[in-house]
Simulated scan of single mutants.
Amino acid sequence: MSANTPCHRSAQSSQLSNSPVTRRTTASDKKLLRCPFPYFGGKSSIVPIVNERFGEITALREPFAGSAALTLAREPVAHEALNDVNHYIVNFWRAIKSDPESVAEHAHHPVTEADLHARSTYLFRGDAVKGAQHRIAQDPEYFDPRLAGWYAWGKSCQIANAFEGVQKSKPSMRGNGVCVPVYRTQRARQLALIDWFGALAERLHNVRILYGDWQRLVSAPSSLGLFNKNSISGIFLDPPYAHSLARVQQLLGLATEISDPDRGRTDCYLCDDDKSQVDQLVADVNHWCQQSGSNPRLRIALCGYSGEHDNLVSDHSWTKHSWTTHGGWANTSKKTDTRGKENKSRETIWFSPGCVGE
């Protein structure tokens, strides 16, 4: 299948076997309802807390979808939508939703350094970048299962954004590819991936997948899922971590000058060319929360590092919940003072007054 050929739902079929494939599990198998590649800053471990604070809702929105952790972990509600500005993430979820077996075919691959470099170059520095962006933006039915499978495989071989900027002089093969339990045969592993991706497709069947700026999903009552007076919408905001906490505070009008521009620096997003744009985005999300948080029909959860959005608590009656991650790849370092190990205890979620509980 050519990566340059638009794919549509009606045109796809599995190439994993010459015989029909029978799915052995359904979306009710909770173990399969998780993103198949590691995602930096994923919130899967805090989902139970968010579900408890959201309570019964009629709509769910994830403007910064990423790994879609909350949507995948919740029971479906009437109106659900994901959005992301990363075209490869959008392509992955589109392809999973429409043709999970073909995605599984291309994601099933041994971890080899030559392929890692070749696929990284093709996806992020070749013609595929511009072509995929254009097609995803112009054709709502377009998806490419090969690019989706390669993206999932590559993200599973490298931590954070290293797959996007992999360097031949610095080999890092700590990932094991798209992981399923160890099986005796390749065919068993392929079938396990089909089960996994098929379960994701079933869960995403009625979920709308948008591509673009996050504000498109929260700009109007209809986009928020507020269709009538009984509608209650859960908004899960998981923007990038701020690069400079001091700069964010200045953008929010909480500080007149930046005495230490690197205070609270995270350096989490390796591919961000302009860190100030990330800080502006964090400030924009905070402004939206200030304006929308008092709406009793909105239950908003905003994720970030400690201190980023405390003005919502002091000035707008929000509450916050701090938690500690498992540490992920940071645990593989023998150093005790790495930024990753410091950041794992800085995770915080701020909840709007309309949320259930506290």
Rank of each mutant, 00 (worst) to 15 (best):
W93L: 04
K43S: 08
N51H: 10
F64K: 07
N51M: 12
A78V: 03
D99R: 03
A59T: 11
A65C: 13
R61Q: 04
A69S: 15
P48V: 00
E75T: 09
L32I: 12
V77G: 03
A65L: 03
A68S: 14
H106M: 00
S45W: 04
F37C: 11
G55E: 05
H108A: 07
Y88K: 06
P76K: 09
F92L: 15
L60A: 05
V103H: 02
T58C: 00
A65S: 13
N86V: 00
P63D: 03
L82V: 14
L72T: 02
E52P: 04
T71W: 02
A65M: 02
P100R: 08
R34M: 01
D99L: 05
E105W: 08
F40Y: 14
T71R: 05
E80G: 01
E80Y: 11
N86I: 03
P63R: 00
D84P: 01
G66E: 03
S67E: 12
N83R: 13
N83P: 05
A107F: 09
S45G: 09
H109M: 10
E101L: 08
S67C: 07
V77S: 03
G66P: 09
S98G: 07
A59C: 01
E75D: 15
W93V: 03
P36F: 10
R34S: 08
R34I: 08
E52C: 06
P100L: 11
H79I: 04
R34L: 00
N83F: 13
I89A: 01
A69P: 14
N83Q: 14
P100H: 12
Y88L: 07
K31F: 02
W93F: 15
C35G: 10
P100V: 10
P76Y: 04
I96P: 00
E101S: 12
P100D: 13
F37K: 11
A78E: 14
R94P: 13
H87R: 10
N51R: 13
V103G: 08
P38L: 07
G41R: 10
K43Q: 00
P48Y: 09
A73L: 13
H108G: 07
I49C: 08
R34V: 10
W93A: 11
V47I: 11
A81F: 08
H109L: 00
F92S: 14
L60M: 04
F92Q: 09
S44E: 13
L33F: 11
G42W: 03
E52N: 13
P36A: 00
I46K: 01
K97N: 04
R61G: 07
E80K: 00
H79N: 15
L32A: 03
I46N: 07
P36C: 01
C35E: 00
L32K: 07
